[in-house]
Design a protein around this nucleic acid. Structure first.
Lengths: 126, 126
DNA sequence: TTTAGCGTTCGACAATCATCGAACATTCGA
DNA sequence: TCGAATGTTCGATGATTGTCGAACGCTAAA
């Protein structure tokens, strides 16, 4: 897992190719679910319509540290039925698309959603 | 090209798998460009930030008929550097994802963006 | 220093995808 | 009715993807 991945260029209006990279990252259902869980558990808006099924069951709000989700990898492995190596691969894809950033926290990671990219997605087609 | 393709189920909150299908349809850059051109030329909002490069150059507003883009296939073939069979394939993918609908108009087609799906995309992450 | 936990990397494999050209079907106009 | 234009279908091919298990490296704790 990268500490800091090279970010795509999110200038005023994003390039078409950047959008297609983001959509590709979200085009696999498992990976989309991973992203939604990270998003839901640390930065989805208050009253968001995003389903409660993405919330970790036994989590207090304290699952968030410095704006990110702590132990994201472990938590997600625990509630998905795919191998750890596959989950690792999906995390990398999400990072390469610029959707998330991971930062070491002791033995595990804090995972943050890149909110400027989320804004770009929300603005798509507007 | 289908006259009417079976539509996905866009209920109140769309299933994750429907979102991933839509993102997959938009994950190829050529296909995303095709979609943007159809969208830009018939139903992008007034003052949309979507780039003018998606506008057909020699088109008057009359390129829209009954809410759709007339001769979409021909026009798009003319300004993209891929074969007609590939363009046909991409149109099918966009239709299967529920993003567009095509209707015969004499020898060619009127192509319509499904605006309820566009709304779902705009609402994603909200 | 040893061990256990966390996550990565590697190599493999089957499945899917993007693309092409050729052949075909349909429709309109001459 | 014939020819041209429009778009589809087919089969092929190389590239990419999603997934796995095994082996590995790093970190924290005993």
């Amino acid at each position: 897992m990268l500490y800091k991945n090279e970010r795509l260029d999110y200038s005023i209006t994003m390039e078409l190719s950047n959008y297609s990279k983001i959509f590709k990252a979200l085009s696999n259902e498992q990976r989309l679910k991973i992203f939604m869980m990270i998003y839901k558990n640390c930065c989805a808006p208050e009253g968001s319509k995003i389903g409660a099924e993405f919330r970790f069951k036994d989590e207090s709000p304290s699952c968030c540290v410095r704006g990110g989700l702590s132990k994201a990898f472990t938590k997600i492995c625990d509630c998905m039925d795919i191998s750890r190596s596959t989950v690792s691969h999906h995390f990398k894809e999400l990072q390469n698309a610029g959707l998330i950033t991971c930062e070491r926290e002791g033995q595990t990671y804090i995972c943050t959603v890149n909110e400027d990219v989320v804004e770009e997605i929300k603005d798509f087609l507007k």
